[in-house]
Design a protein around this nucleic acid. Structure first.
Lengths: 194, 194
DNA sequence: TTTGCTTTTGAACGCTTGTTCATTAAATTG
DNA sequence: CAATTTAATGAACAAGCGTTCAAAAGCAAA
């Protein structure tokens, strides 16, 4: 009973990635079987191999897509002051991450399940993102707008703080995203100024 | 009568936990087999069951032990001002976590591999730890020392920022732990004051 | 040395894993 | 309608999983 209703290849591909995303985020890469992903899509396990060469590629593609989107959408308007750029960055980071909790979760939790080569690629993208923020901090330190002793540490501290939002923020909760952004911006602004 | 001095059980038990800790941190709970843990100890897989009823308990005991230690050692000197207590907390958190990278990693990454009941226990301990920090922030907000609008958010932001140290700090690196503590305390202090 | 308890072995259990592939059915094309 | 292409099945593979347990080995006390 192959191919039950209609031709699905252009539909099944995205559904496979969506199912893998959801299940990897919920249970972890190692704990999710190809059969579980197939069941979520509504096909047999063998059919998945029309859409991915193997399980590892499924994970890598999800992570690479996420990091690529993140970098592509990071604001970088050189016409604005370091302070304004920092504010843009904080707002962007919180909103971008709040919109994609599953992708963010995977990108942070499943690094160790990547092969060595795949890990190097993702690590490079992550570092490129950190460099965007650090460039802003260095610019602000140069103009004296910011009082930061060690831009690398401040970069990592800010990103850790902002990404932490994802562990508790839920749409429709006590606080709106606007309020969250305002609160975090207040903390970041004070932390980087004298 | 009972084999007291030559017994291996008091030696093997801790070695099993140490091996599980190291391997879980390196590869993830789901990806580490009981046979791999046994091999690390130098014993056959069956022997592990003299020391743990099952794999889940091994994970839970490690996490519970870690969280219990964390709570037990958290400073709580009511004679000090909120500002001093906050400084104590920041220094303690960074040092305690830097000392136990594997335990910290597991405690944050393997929550989803706990059974429902075990998760509830660990979650309770984590929340209790957060409450310690929030109590300090509330006390400081009450006296006017701190300018924090939402103590819950600030609590989570600070903890996320401090715990982030573990993703990059390595003993013998560019910065000493004293320097790290000083830098983070500077950021936290500025973030919570006006 | 013998007795008795503790600890470990090693095989076995039923089940799941990622992946392959010949087969078959549906959709598309001529 | 017939021929072809595409996509899904379902069985099979070898390997590995957590866990159990009778048997063996090791050691302490008598």
């Amino acid at each position: 009973m192959a191919r039950t209703t209609g031709s699905h290849s252009d539909i099944t591909g995205p559904r496979v990635r969506a199912a893998a995303l959801r299940l990897f985020a919920a249970g972890g890469y190692a704990a999710v079987s190809m059969r579980a992903i197939a069941a979520e899509v509504g096909v047999q396990a063998g059919a998945l191999y029309n859409y991915t060469p193997d399980k590892q590629s499924l994970l890598f593609d999800l992570m690479q897509g996420h990091m690529t989107d993140l970098l592509a959408q990071t604001p970088s308007q050189s016409g604005r002051s370091p302070m304004q750029q920092l504010q843009d960055f904080v707002a962007f980071h919180i909103r971008f991450h709040a919109d994609r909790p599953d992708e963010v979760f995977i990108a942070y939790m499943e690094l160790r399940n990547l092969t060595e080569e795949n890990f190097a690629v993702i690590e490079g993208l992550r570092r490129a993102y950190e460099d965007r923020l650090e460039a802003i901090l260095r610019a602000g330190a140069a103009t004296g707008e910011f009082a930061v002793a060690d831009t690398k540490i401040v970069t990592l501290a800010i990103i850790a703080m902002l990404t932490g939002v994802n562990t508790w923020y839920r749409a429709g909760g006590r606080l709106s995203l606007d309020e969250v952004v305002a609160q975090y911006w207040d903390m970041v602004r004070k932390a980087v100024t004298a």
